[in-house]
Nucleic acid binder design. Structure first.
Lengths: 130, 130
DNA sequence: TGACAACTACGAAGGTCTTCGTATATAATA
DNA sequence: TATTATATACGAAGACCTTCGTAGTTGTCA
């Protein structure tokens, strides 16, 4: 089963993970600078506190060999996406990924290229499965 | 634009909305009985309090003409699903429904019937759009 | 070396969510 | 009518999330 080794990241945690995913291991300063550059106005110690909590939760690991600790994301972006998607599935779509997919396709315009990509994936699934 | 007339329902609120969607307008007693039957062990006044808050938020409307007020869900299940899905899209999928669909199809087994249903929907989209 | 800059740790405040106990009002019943 | 059952209202507690200020430590450099 293994529901999930780590708890689902919260909103603020997700913003930090995004930085780590895009930039690789970072110091608190790096993350704060990047988020500020993106327009978020949040204090340095706020980011620090959050990253400390994330380390306790196991969402990041810290390398404290240098004075400025370096943090690395533990879950990959795919893993986190999967976990969050499953959460939504359970809460709002009766656990059915099919319902979610149909709902997404009906309510969001997919470009011809997008549709072709989906068809290719379906073809591949068709081949590997019976 | 109209981001959303009502705030996204929380977890406990969603559980109550599920009952209202499936059973139609209900009293607090109805909802509590149903949720208890489903295995949730939560007190009657907890449900009452939640439904009072939901009425304030506009998630339900109440008919207080009888002693036992009757509550009705305001957002449809589709509306709520849409709102929650868009929220997840923004938070974890870079706002791209396409990414979400691809991710869902890759990580969840779709049956041949499911795949056929998706293809039919894609065909329909193909026809109406260029 | 002494002053300053940058870092981590920590406590606490304010918000939301969920839970329930208690108070109070109203209907049903013996 | 007096008692009992059932309603709603309300306050508050405990958990979590996000925010920041302050304190203390460590490196840098004039």
């Amino acid at each position: 089963m293994t529901p999930s080794p780590v708890k689902n990241p919260t909103d603020a945690e997700l913003r930090i993970l995004h930085v780590l995913w895009r930039h690789g291991p970072c110091t608190v300063r790096d993350v704060h600078t990047e988020l500020s550059r993106e327009g978020a106005l949040v204090g340095y110690t706020t980011i620090l506190k959050l990253m400390q909590i994330m380390a306790e939760k196991g969402l990041v690991v810290r390398d404290d060999s240098a004075r400025a600790h370096i943090f690395r994301a533990v879950p990959s972006e795919e893993t986190a996406q999967n976990s969050l998607m499953n959460d939504l599935l359970k809460r709002a779509f009766d656990g059915s990924a099919q319902k979610l997919v149909m709902h997404a396709l009906e309510t969001h315009k997919a470009s011809p290229e997008d549709r072709a990509e989906i068809r290719r994936l379906l073809d591949a699934l068709e081949r590997e499965n019976t």
